[in-house]
């Protein structure tokens, strides 16, 4: 029953997680104040013989305080969020030199395309793998996300990546993995009968392993 986010493995994950913990603390404090306050009032002001309630209409001072403090708090959270949002999803957020991949979402598979030896995505020497994304570690990558039929959503929890795949649009999703290993991909938008089976895997390789894997795949595609 944890409030701690699962381990992450991408560069911007820590920024997102930090925001989460800030909000967790702030809302946690507000939660305690209100709930404890309610319990105290329930006990302290319960009806007992001989007591009378106080005829109080309100307090302008109180209204100002409990308007201003929440207002300032949420505005601060908003401003803190803005920077991270711009870094992750902004118009110019994709780092220069990010390796492009095609991610085509369809009922109920992910078709991942890799650029072939010519180094260009979208040319004849590209090859496609079903449900497997292989990327090198410590290297920005960008998914050119498309959808064949209905709205799907590319969700990689460990990288704190999520982006809806919209038919008719190509959306760039960038991230940079910081650990070698295998991580899960899920579809996060109801897309039909097989929505539950749209799992896939990201394998993060060392730079050398990645080149070896690529070479193997290119050779296999040629055969």
């Amino acid at each position: 029953m944890s409030w701690i986010l699962p381990p992450s493995a991408s560069t911007f994950a820590s920024d997102i997680d930090f925001l989460y913990y800030v909000i967790l603390w702030i809302t946690g404090i507000a939660f305690v104040i209100v709930e404890v306050g309610l319990v105290v009032f329930i006990v302290k002001y319960r009806a007992r013989p001989g007591r009378k309630a106080e005829y109080i209409q309100g307090s302008t001072k109180a209204e100002v305080i409990w308007t201003a403090i929440p207002a300032v708090t949420v505005v601060v959270i908003g401003l803190m969020s803005g920077g991270v949002w711009n870094d992750v999803k902004g118009r110019n957020s994709v780092p220069a030199g990010a390796i492009p991949y095609g991610v085509h979402a369809q009922q109920f598979e992910w078709q991942i395309s890799y650029r072939g030896p010519d180094g260009q995505l979208g040319t004849g020497d590209d090859f496609t793998v079903r449900n497997q994304l292989h990327i090198p570690v410590n290297q920005p990558v960008v998914m050119r996300l498309t959808a064949e039929d209905v709205i799907h959503s590319l969700f990689i929890p460990a990288f704190r990546v999520k982006q809806d795949a919209m038919p008719g649009m190509t959306i760039d999703v960038w991230f940079e993995a910081t650990q070698v290993g295998e991580f899960e991909i899920a579809c996060a938008e109801l897309c039909g009968i097989g929505h539950t089976t749209m799992g896939a895997t990201v394998t993060v390789h060392t730079a050398d392993d990645y080149q070896r894997w690529l070479a193997d795949r290119v050779a296999a595609a040629d055969r």
């Binding site: 997102i16 925001l19 949420v74 803190m80 969020s81 949002w85 992750v88 999520k162």
Partner: peptide, 12 residues
Amino acid sequence: GVFMASPPVDIY
């Protein structure tokens, strides 16, 4: 709701 109001946190 505050968590989801922050778009980067809403990513998750």
